[in-house]
Simulated assay, not measured.
Amino acid sequence: MTHITLTLQRSFVSDHFHDLPGFVEPRHGHNWTVEAEVMLGDTASEFDFARALDAWVAVLDYTLLNDHAWLKGRNPTAELLAQWAFEHLEASGFRPRRVRIREKANYWAACLERA
């Protein structure tokens, strides 16, 4: 059986701040990048994948990340965003292999497919 993976990349702009003990930073923004790789099944298409990823990005673009319920009580980090995007793609019916979030030019975090 042939397995096809597809990777898409999207950008978004969001602010965040860190205010939990041990990690405090004032509000600041980033030009984030999400890169997601999914295993396409027999019925899933590139269009469906793009629509699911774009829906997740639309929720975050030009927002304060701290205001999102999914991040309530947690510092919004690249690691948590990668997990959130991964879970969103799973909930949308995809089998993600990897989701990477770039917060800065030299800083990426990834959430990987469970073994």
Results as ranks from 00 to 15, higher is better:
L71N: 11
F17M: 01
G29A: 11
D48A: 15
D42E: 14
F47M: 15
H18E: 07
T7Q: 11
P26W: 08
Y107N: 08
H18G: 07
L112W: 11
A58M: 04
L40H: 06
S92G: 00
K72G: 03
F94P: 07
E113N: 00
R74Q: 15
R27H: 02
F49I: 10
H3I: 10
H28I: 06
E25K: 15
R102M: 09
H88F: 00
V57C: 13
V57Y: 05
A58Y: 02
A36I: 12
A85E: 04
D61L: 04
L8R: 03
L40S: 12
H28D: 02
M39Q: 09
A78R: 01
F47R: 15
A115K: 00
I101H: 06
Y107L: 13
C111Q: 13
W84D: 15
R10E: 12
H30Q: 10
C111R: 15
W32A: 01
L71D: 06
A109M: 08
V57S: 04
Y62S: 11
F86V: 02
R97K: 15
V59K: 14
R97W: 02
N75V: 14
R98Y: 01
L6F: 08
A110K: 02
D54V: 04
V34C: 08
I4D: 04
D48G: 10
A50F: 05
T7L: 00
V38N: 08
A69P: 01
G93E: 03
T5L: 01
W56S: 14
L40Q: 10
R51M: 15
L81Y: 09
F23E: 08
H3F: 11
F47A: 15
